[in-house]
């Protein structure tokens, strides 16, 4: 019986993993086509300077943007902006992760921590991180530290709240099982609470990464002298419109790659979760 079940499980996994020959190229092709049509529409709008309340006269065409991108990426100064932004993101995100997960675990597990630590968090949570920019400039000695502060703040709330949520959702029966197998308090925290909350923590990290990019770019636009957000805003001021779009696309790609890293690391840490496949994949 055991072998039969194993064989069945393996067969099911193989069927889910390998879509058959003909259909394998269809979905990527559809996706490429979709992007191609968008680029074509953009090109047409700028080519004919469309003006129907929305005005395309000053909008650079895809070709302008590509030319500008090639030029920017062959000079060193643009990489400096990218590195500045990346450094702030990862620093802010790392601080928010450590603080958010640690506080979230405590608040979720201990009633005393919930009563003492959660009220201030709830008080500050509705304030968008960008609204902290003036205070942050006054609080922190350098531009870098004040922007990292804003970035941390943006990521912190989703991380801490999802961690709390994850801890509170842990099946009490698993805690009972652990105690009846000889686990003490520390072991329960390490072996049950932390891994039990992990899926929710990873969700929090993924949301937090997105929010911290929003905060970073906003903060750089308002108060920065470096960074991709600053670069994009300044491009508008000095009438280099193609640079605006290159800045935007760069932000998008960097944000996407950061989220991808979080998701991949998350999946790596949770090998027990089944991978879901959609119909028609």
């Amino acid at each position: 019986m055991a072998t039969a079940q194993l064989v069945r499980a393996t067969a099911a996994r193989a069927a889910a993993a390998a879509p058959l020959g003909l259909t394998s190229w269809r979905r990527p092709a559809l996706r490429a086509l979709s992007i191609g049509l968008f680029l074509l529409a953009w090109h047409a709008a700028t080519l004919w300077d469309l003006d129907f309340y929305v005005r395309f006269q000053n909008i650079p065409s895809p070709g302008d943007v590509l030319a500008e991108a090639i030029e920017l990426f062959s000079s060193w100064s643009f990489y400096g902006h990218i590195l500045a932004s990346l450094e702030r993101i990862w620093l802010g995100f790392a601080i928010a992760t450590v603080l958010g997960v640690a506080l979230g675990l405590l608040i979720g597990w201990f009633a005393f921590a919930e009563d003492t630590l959660l009220p201030p968090i709830e008080l500050f949570r509705p304030i968008p991180a960008v609204a902290w920019v003036p205070i942050s400039i006054m609080l922190w000695p350098t531009e870098r530290s004040s922007i990292v502060f804003i970035t941390t703040l943006g990521a912190f709330f989703p991380i801490v709240l999802n961690t709390i949520h994850g801890v509170e959702g842990i099946d009490r029966q698993l805690v009972r099982a652990a105690t009846s197998l000889g686990a003490g308090r520390a072991a329960i925290f390490r072996e049950v609470v932390l891994p039990g909350a992990l899926p929710s923590i990873v969700t929090g990290l993924s949301v937090g990464m997105g929010v911290s990019w929003i905060c970073l770019i906003s903060a750089e636009m308002i108060s920065g002298q470096f960074g991709v957000g600053y670069f994009t805003w300044v491009a508008y001021g000095i009438v280099k419109y193609a640079q605006i779009v290159v800045g935007m696309l760069t932000i998008g790609v960097l944000g996407m790659l950061s989220s991808l890293v979080v998701r991949l690391v998350g999946a790596r840490c949770m090998p027990w979760l089944p991978r879901r496949e959609k119909d028609g994949a």
């Binding site: 029966q173 009972r176 099982a177 105690t179 009846s180 049950v192 949770m270």
Partner: peptide, 20 residues
């Protein structure tokens, strides 16, 4: 007085640690 490994419990279902 408290739970312990000398008195093991087999529950109705869903009591294995899913992450192990």
């Amino acid at each position: 007085r408290e739970p312990g490994a000398d008195r093991g419990v087999v529950f109705q279902q869903h009591s294995l640690f899913p992450w192990k």
